[in-house]
């Protein structure tokens, strides 16, 4: 009987982050392929009550450490608690989110447990009992497949917004085991947490993104993209040229030295399509490019290209979207 597959979840502000359900679903697929049990680790403050939600995604056992000292993610405390639970459940495979905190936790866990971690994976397969994982390298210009050597537990972090969530089955309830782990004294501290409260949609989790580049010409012109984004329920991103010009904050930058995003629809407006920008959005399901230069490299990546002046096209497109939204709702 193979050991279990273990997924590490992420909890914030009283609820699971969606990526938790993605890794649980991926864990379920791998556990089925191995004929293994699926367990999950949930740690934080006030998490016990919600822990059983994971059952809907196929988790059979949830290990919970619930402590006010775990209110905020801190590598030193989280890695100690997580490592202790992993040792206790003795998994065959560990899957966690390649979120900001997940990537950090995974890397430190890999060193503590002396295992191999494949970070930011977009595909995981189980080939005759052997686990293989794939992730983008060289800014998405290539993909690497990795395997683990005999006797090593594969640790895999999965890129958010890539793995499909299973249809939740609310009737399934996991067993919940509370694990007491002494929380170590940490030499680092969380001073402040500032969450965007304006209801801004996070780029890495958005279904639709509209990004503006140097072609936008001025910070004030982004109001046009914001208006369109509000209609579509989209997030607004930017190219490095726009960020370097001070029109948008760095947190909006998409690309090799910005965020890697994976929406269903990416609309690039006044962006030329430099390789470093493509690195951040090249795996979007559908790409639309709006550019006045028909030779712009972005068109070679776009499913739909519009050769037009953005200052004329975007208002016209916004009107059409508005018409469509009012007739359809």
């Amino acid at each position: 009987m193979p050991k279990c597959v273990c997924v590490i979840t992420e909890f914030r502000e009283g609820k699971f982050r969606r990526v938790s359900f993605e890794v649980a679903s991926e864990g379920r697929r791998i556990a089925d392929a191995l004929g293994a049990h699926l367990c999950a680790i949930v740690i934080g403050s006030g998490v016990t009550e919600k822990a059983s939600e994971l059952g809907a995604y196929g988790v059979e056992t949830v290990y919970v450490t619930d402590d006010p000292a775990l209110e905020h993610y801190l590598t030193e405390t989280y890695v100690t608690v997580t490592a202790a639970i992993i040792k206790a459940c003795d998994p065959a495979v560990v899957i966690l989110p390649a979120s900001v905190n997940g990537k950090d936790l995974g890397a430190r866990l890999a060193a503590r447990l002396e295992v191999g971690l494949a970070q930011d994976c977009v595909e995981v397969i189980c080939d005759k009992g052997i686990i293989k994982a794939k992730w983008p390298i060289f800014a998405g210009k290539c993909f690497a497949w990795s395997e683990w050597t005999e006797g090593t537990i594969p640790f895999i972090s999965c890129r958010p917004n890539v793995m499909d969530c299973l249809m939740p089955d609310e009737t399934k309830k996991p067993s919940v085991e509370v694990i007491k782990v002494p929380i170590p004294e940490a030499r680092s501290r969380v001073q402040r947490v500032d969450l965007d409260t304006a209801g801004k949609i996070e780029l890495t989790e958005a279904n639709i993104i509209i990004s503006g580049g140097r072609g936008m010409k001025d910070a004030s012109n982004y109001a046009m993209l914001e208006e369109l984004a509000a209609l579509l329920g989209a997030a607004v991103g930017a190219s490095r040229a726009a960020v370097d010009s001070g029109w948008r904050p760095h947190s909006d930058q998409v690309g090799q030295t910005g965020k890697v995003v994976n929406p269903n629809l990416y609309i690039a407006v006044g962006i030329s399509g430099a390789i470093q920008h493509l690195a951040g959005m090249g795996s979007s399901k559908f790409i639309v490019a709006v550019n006045k230069d028909s030779d712009a490299p972005i068109f070679s990546k776009a499913d739909y290209g519009v050769v037009a002046d953005l200052f004329q096209f975007i208002p016209a497109f916004t009107e059409e979207v508005r018409k469509y939204k009012t007739t359809c709702s």
């Binding site: 890397a107 060193a111 971690l117 992730w135 390298i137």
Partner: peptide, 14 residues
């Protein structure tokens, strides 16, 4: 920006 594994710093600290 080559193999993009984001692990070196955390491992060193450990």
């Amino acid at each position: 920006v080559d193999y993009d594994q984001a692990q070196r710093g955390a491992m060193m600290a450990e």
